[in-house]
Design a protein around this nucleic acid. Structure first.
Lengths: 185, 185
DNA sequence: ACCTGAACACCGTTCAAGT
DNA sequence: ACCTGAACACCGTTCAAGT
């Protein structure tokens, strides 16, 4: 008895999920149509083409991957160091970030995607810098230290191998200590 | 008068270039066949399928992205800190590393690709640790500091935004200083 | 207003047939 | 031994026709 009618939101939700699970190539009109129970022809009533759908899915991802995460972190704990650690955890295993690699790769070939990634990086870098400023009495080389932590966040998220006898949480914990020590010059 | 005949190496070279330029999706049999001046049917004489070609291209990438880079660095300069800086430069702009994002993304869905990336990470991490050990009198938390530097290398390679008033070389230089300072406990 | 169904293009894969 | 050419499947895109 359910109407087969699907709104743009249904397509976008399905596309976002496919994007996170399988990357940009997994966002294909015909399989999505099958999953939604309509024909692919109906897709073109709601969207210009496949690219428009990907763009809409990226909007969702951009929000979830920045403000969404930041709000959750801020709401969960108050201590800046605890926030960094939580941020670390969330960005390590979050399904919403599963598409991060695919999107950064995609950004190499699409300047509008590159603009998105730039916005996201800048926003996250701001957040990390704020946490660091709250943690550290000295503002010595705040930019450099924030970048160090953020790059560590991104890099460690993408690195498969881990050093012997350490887990990811330990890596960040030591990094924070390094970065705070480095401020005491 | 040139024979249209193409050996596996011709296909692999073309595939590697496509992989670095446009990611895994850009490695398509029919366009490559056109570029090589043969029909796509001939491709299947040399390879089982598209995946076998991608696999061969990954072999090339794996060598170029690890031993290839390391050999070039070692041959160019002797000082460990200079080596780190050169490593940084090479991994920032090298075309051979253009596929790095695509491959890491791909590794999420293919365990044999994940194995490759794990090997590469481990090898590079070893190299960074060796340089760090040569630089630093103290072996205090060598693992953690090597991981920090390597993650910074990877992360900064993938981050689009840069902190205001700093270029990438400066970021690494400060990071190395941090990491060396952190050893003096 | 929204969807179906048929059509066409592009590419992966197979294979019989050519040289 | 290596390649062509035709065939088929899958998916992106268009569009006339249905409700």
């Amino acid at each position: 008895m359910t109407t087969p009618r699907k709104g743009p939101e249904d397509w976008i939700a399905a596309a976002f999920k496919a994007l996170a699970d399988g990357g940009a190539d997994a966002v294909r009109v015909e399989p999505l149509a099958r999953a939604l129970g309509v024909t692919k022809g109906s897709f073109y009533w709601h969207f210009t083409d496949r690219n428009a759908l990907l763009d809409a899915a990226l909007d969702t991802w951009e929000r979830a991957g920045t403000e969404g995460i930041i709000e959750r972190v801020d709401a969960s704990v108050a201590d800046p160091r605890a926030r960094l650690l939580l941020l670390w955890e969330l960005t390590s295993g979050e399904p919403g970030l599963g598409a991060e690699l695919a999107i950064r790769d995609w950004a190499r070939r699409d300047s509008s995607v590159a603009d998105r990634v730039r916005r996201i990086d800048a926003r996250r870098l701001d957040y990390v810098r704020d946490l660091l400023a709250a943690l550290s009495p000295s503002s010595h080389d705040l930019e450099g230290r924030a970048m160090l932590l953020y790059a560590l966040l991104i890099g460690n998220f993408f690195i498969v191998a881990q050093p012997a006898g350490m887990d990811r949480a330990e890596v960040l914990d030591r990094a924070v200590t390094f970065v705070l020590d480095a401020a005491r010059v």
